[in-house]
Simulated assay, not measured.
Amino acid sequence: MGLLAQIGYQNSWIEVLGATFMRHAFIGGTLVALASGLVGYFVVVRRDAFAAHALAHIGFPGATGAALIGAPVTLGLAVFCVAGGLAIGAFGKRVDRREVATGTVLAFATSLGVLFASMATDSTTSVTSVLFGNLLAISAEQLIVFGTMTAVLVVAMVIIARPLLFASITPEVAEARGVPVRSLGIAFLVLLALVVAMATQVVGTLLLFALVVTPAATALVITARPIAAVAIATGIALGCVWGGLVLSAMFNLPPSFPIVSLAFGGWLAALARSRVLERSGRPTASASTLGR
């Protein structure tokens, strides 16, 4: 009852939105949404959703280990996520092999996370933030790190987007034409690791799909055109973060809940629209099955 009593309409929510911590949350959430929307399309097309989910858990021992030794949590997340991405990319070339490599690396990382978490008894708040996210606790220093990561990601994706799309859709043909399919795959996993390291601090390890996968899956139900899908996915991610923050201030909710709920609701709405179009015989996006 105590928890329910805390949840309700807040008359002062407009003032809350103007607070420094909320401004940091909007800026940090915007950067993460932009990065997630850009990478999410390729995550779904390349069938790397499991890898994205696994990288978040692989980053967990990095975050708990960083908390244990007093290092920045963002640094620990980034180091372990990138190392995990490199390992998955090196051990798994095809989708089936990549899933086996992902599961193996994930199991080892999870065991480390359990060990570090049991040792970090004085850092339970940091551990909880890694699991469920704490967008309202983003600092000015983290915003600088997020901004740098996002800039690096955008530049890298502009460079590799075209060959990566070719390698993602028809890897055998791309490899036959001299496209470095494996190198592109490893590079993409490293970029995905950076996004995961950021997104984990917004929605947490357990809810990562809400920003990295769900908006892109929703966009691919709506359209199969790559540029349009990336733009729609980014727009959905931004809308979920902004709307979630406003709702959290209005009703005294943890931001992760409304952010994830909005993403989930958008996905369901897109699927419902697709079903209606199919039943009426009207054309739908050829990639709609990715959202099913």
Rank of each mutant, 00 (worst) to 15 (best):
A5M: 08
S12A: 10
W13I: 10
G18W: 11
G29K: 09
A33G: 03
L38F: 04
F42I: 08
F42V: 02
V44G: 02
V45D: 01
R46P: 07
R47D: 14
D48Y: 10
D48W: 07
H57A: 08
G62P: 04
I69W: 08
P72S: 10
T74Q: 12
F80P: 03
C81K: 07
G89Y: 01
R94S: 14
R97Y: 05
T104P: 00
A109H: 06
G113Y: 11
A117Y: 01
M119Y: 07
T121M: 11
T124N: 09
T124L: 15
T125K: 14
V130H: 05
S139T: 15
S139N: 09
T150D: 13
A156N: 07
R162E: 12
F166Q: 07
V181I: 05
S183Q: 10
A197R: 13
T200L: 07
L207N: 14
V213L: 12
A228M: 12
A231L: 13
T234V: 01
A237W: 02
V241E: 01
V241W: 04
G244S: 04
L247Q: 01
S248Q: 00
L253A: 05
P255S: 12
L277P: 00
E278W: 01
G281M: 14
R282L: 15
P283F: 09
L290T: 01
R292L: 14
